Amino acid sequence: MLKSRNFWGTVALTVSMALPVQAEELKVDSVVATVDGVEITLGHMLMVRAFLPEQYQQLPGDVLWDGILDQLIQQQVLSTDEMAKETPRVRIALDNERRSQLASVVLAELAEQPIPEDEIKAAYEAEYANGPQGKEFNASHILVETEEEAQAIVAELAAGADFATLAKEKSTGPSGPGGGALGWFGPGMMVPPFQEAVEKMEPGGVGGPVKTQFGWHVIKLNETRIKEAPSLDQVRAQIESTLRQQTVTKKIEDLVNAANVTRTKKEDVDTSILSNLDLLEN
């Protein structure tokens, strides 16, 4: 019995040793490596991961881990080499990066601030509810290759031929099988000659021939309507985006106006100097 208990104890120990150790729960400031006492943290790795080229963005962590950590370790040892010098390029790049990152924090904070519902409703009323939405047109057309063909179709229609029937028989456009119907469209949605002809027509009227880059058109304006305003829910995201952009713009303008800013006029300098990147090496 003693031997049996020892045997099963050995098996249990062996199995427990074979189980994977639970991965340590890391935080952004968790140290993942040290190089001569200098700590490399998970946060450093995350920043490298955030700026990887797009083709690497979808790779899982187990594929990226060693490569990112190796890169940081190699950069650290190189940065302490005697040949490493804080050149003007390095110093200026660090200045710009710090400035950019701090500005990004402010922009992110502004983007997360909720927009009051009354401002959203007011913007909706101003943009949609109280303003004209324009006219929409429902038209059909028959597309042919020559002006002579188009004129012949106009003559047939004047003699009482059915527009949809002629479109099915003679139109070379993709709408032909559907009787030439184009459905509803608004200003600017058709090529200019076609749009201009439609906008001059009365509902039920036939116009043409009209030439476009696609050929010759005979057009029938079926009906018109005033475009209905979208609901608030349909345009809420667009309105919120516009209001947030306005908030950011105003914040920047207010800060610039409050700051003591001096700037060199471009008229006083040779602006071609911006192409002389060799100055960064001096």
Rank of each mutant, 00 (worst) to 15 (best):
P203M: 07
R263H: 09
L78E: 15
A126W: 04
N138M: 10
V21D: 13
P203S: 04
T146P: 01
L26G: 04
V48Y: 00
H141M: 13
A258L: 11
L243W: 01
G134Y: 07
E149D: 12
V191R: 05
K265I: 01
M83Q: 14
V154P: 02
D233C: 05
G61C: 10
D118C: 07
V38L: 12
N222M: 09
I68F: 01
E149Y: 02
A139R: 03
R263E: 14
N96T: 03
L102Q: 12
E39V: 01
M45A: 01
S79K: 14
Q57K: 09
V11N: 10
K251N: 13
I219V: 08
G204E: 15
I40Y: 00
D254P: 00
L64R: 02
P53I: 02
P60E: 15
D66L: 12
S16A: 14
E148A: 12
N257F: 08
T262M: 15
S171W: 00
V15Y: 07
E253K: 04
E39F: 04
K121V: 07
I252M: 06
G188W: 04
K200I: 02
S175Q: 09
A229D: 04
A129S: 08
Q22W: 13
T165Q: 14
E267G: 06
N6G: 13
M47N: 10
L182S: 04
V191E: 13
R236I: 02
P60I: 04
P203T: 00
K3G: 08
D81S: 15
L94W: 06
I226H: 09
E196A: 08
E202L: 14
I73E: 12
D278Y: 06
